[in-house]
Design a protein around this nucleic acid. Structure first.
Length: 467
RNA sequence: GGCGGCAUAGCCAAGUGGUAAGGCCGGGGUCUGCAAAACCCCUACCCCCAGUUCGAAUCUGGGUGCCGCCUCCA
């Protein structure tokens, strides 16, 4: 099986990927908190890890890919309140929107897509285990993780506990209300108490809801086991989210939560992070109105996943222009159907090797895409139909690893354009009639009729209908 | 303040010690009734300074600029 190099945030190095069980990969990616439409940054997360799991499968691994949905959270509750609807309903609506966006972006559905609210009981058990082990404590209906009880705290985010504690004092203002409950300012909530009129679940510590970090630890444990191969997510999750997951899970299980921690970089706007809180985002929905999923995926994947992308419309347009050559070249896969295949195996083999090497080098999709373009050039330059077809099939096959459809939509006509074309045809016919060129006028009507379009002349001009 | 990252052509973007992939735009050409498309060709000494080395965009030190995390965030 092909050797794949991955950059592990935990060690800060590129390492050879070795799964726990040969030939199998367990992978968990932190998904969205559903409280509003997803933006391009979320699309990047989804596209990158979708591509990674596709590549593992392409290499022959048996992949179990899990991506969660956070459907209970302070932000959901706050926005639902401002909209005057229940948090459950808001979360559900946004989940449907998210699914719609994912499908539109040709992101494959994960093997499991657990929602936090489906795992409340397991989370409670998880917390009970931590309390029993001396890693968590109860304070007035809340439960906090005792960070000092986990001596490896900070290993992922490269944080020093003393520095965190002294740093936390400076920013304790926002958490002042909790200061008297927490033993240490760096302790984080496993369970938050809630008033009966708020969203809550019963627990041994009274009604409440889970802390954010807990759900991932719990769902990883129950779906994939105490240790998984790959845990992925956006780089903003390194600290504290993933750090806290490690603390919880490893304190409970006394074994590594994940062997490899992979993090994708951000989409920025004017050199600033695109984020919901800054409001400088483009929703996936908006972008899909003007750009195909291929264009958006190419745009995202032409940068390495660990490099930031500065979003501009110009750059997106440039990607769209470029993608046309790939699409044209790929169209040869359906042409020359009667030609023999495999005539130009050398070019295909060379391409496949270069593509696989790029992808195996920490998922270097930028280089992989450059290989697609080079193959497209070879296809378009080739004079041999069988070669073209063989190369085009390889092109489509490998583009699919990146989630690119390369569907040729150049001749697709939308409704509006269709109506304009009918106007044009009827105008031309009217001109023919004006010249008393009834042969042409009748030819037009007859041809349209054969296509199921009836043209009706009247004193006020011609009209048409399908039927 | 602590931790981490980035700086490559007009723009986007690979590159992890041997003299710069790819895409967009632009220029020139072939083709063409016109136009478009297509195809061919052209366009960088890699932020600055010092060092290591036979050799550095790539390693080391310093500087400058920018970004992220440390609080919700993909």
């Amino acid at each position: 099986m092909r050797e794949i190099q991955v950059y592990n945030t935990l060690t800060g190095k590129k390492e050879t990927f070795e799964p726990m069980v040969p030939g199998k990969v367990t992978m968990y990616a932190c998904g969205p908190t559903v409280y509003m439409l997803s933006h391009l940054g979320h699309a990047r997360m989804a596209i990158v890890w979708d591509t990674v799991q596709r590549f593992f499968r392409h290499c022959g691994y048996e992949v179990t890919y899990v991506r969660n949905i956070t459907d209970v959270d302070d932000k959901i509750i706050a926005r639902a309140k401002s909209l005057g609807i229940s948090p459950e309903r808001l979360a559900r609506e946004c989940t449907y929107d998210f699914w719609h966006d994912m499908r539109s972006l040709n992101v494959q559905f994960p093997d499991y897509e657990p929602r936090a609210t489906e795992y409340i009981q397991q989370m409670i058990s998880f917390v009970e285990g931590l309390i029993a082990g001396g890693h968590a404590y109860v304070a007035q209906g809340d439960v906090y993780f005792d960070v000092q009880s986990f001596d490896q705290y900070g290993k992922l985010g490269k944080q020093n506990l003393d520095a965190l504690i002294s740093g936390a004092r400076d920013q304790a203002v926002a958490q002042e209300a909790l200061a008297h409950l927490k033993k240490s300012p760096v302790d984080f909530a496993l369970w938050k108490s809630a008033n009966p009129d708020e969203l809550n679940w019963p627990s041994p510590w009274g009604p409440g809801r889970p802390g954010w970090h807990l759900e991932c630890s719990t769902m990883v444990k129950h779906i994939l086991g105490p240790t998984i191969d790959i845990h992925a997510g956006g780089e903003d999750l390194v600290f504290p989210h993933h750090e806290n997951e490690i603390a919880q899970s490893e304190a409970l299980h006394d074994q590594p939560l994940a062997r490899y921690w992979l993090h994708n970089s951000f989409v920025q706007v004017s050199a600033e992070k695109m984020s919901k809180s800054l409001g400088n985002f483009k929703t996936i929905r908006d972008l899909l109105e003007q750009y195909s999923s291929d264009t958006i995926r190419l745009f995202v994947l032409q940068s390495h996943y660990r490099s930031p992308i500065d979003f501009t419309i110009e750059a997106l347009n440039a990607t769209r222009s470029g993608s046309m050559r790939l699409i044209k070249a790929a169209a040869f896969a359906e042409q020359n159907a009667d030609a023999d295949l495999g005539a130009d195996l050398e070019a295909v083999a060379k391409f496949e090797k270069a593509f696989a090497e790029a992808m195996s080098n920490d998922f270097n999709t930028a280089v992989a895409i450059s290989q697609l373009y080079q193959l497209a050039d070879a296809i378009l330059a080739s004079k041999s139909g069988s070669d073209q077809r063989a190369m085009a099939q390889a092109l489509k096959e490998h583009a699919a690893i990146l989630g690119l459809t390369l569907q040729d939509t150049r001749n697709d006509i939308d409704l509006d354009t269709g109506k304009k074309l009918m106007d044009l045809i009827l105008t031309l016919r009217q001109e023919a009639r004006g010249r008393k060129d009834y042969a042409s006028a009748d030819l037009i009507r007859k041809s349209l009729s054969q296509s199921g379009i009836n043209v009706m002349d009247s004193a006020s001009g011609a009209s048409w209908e399908i039927g």
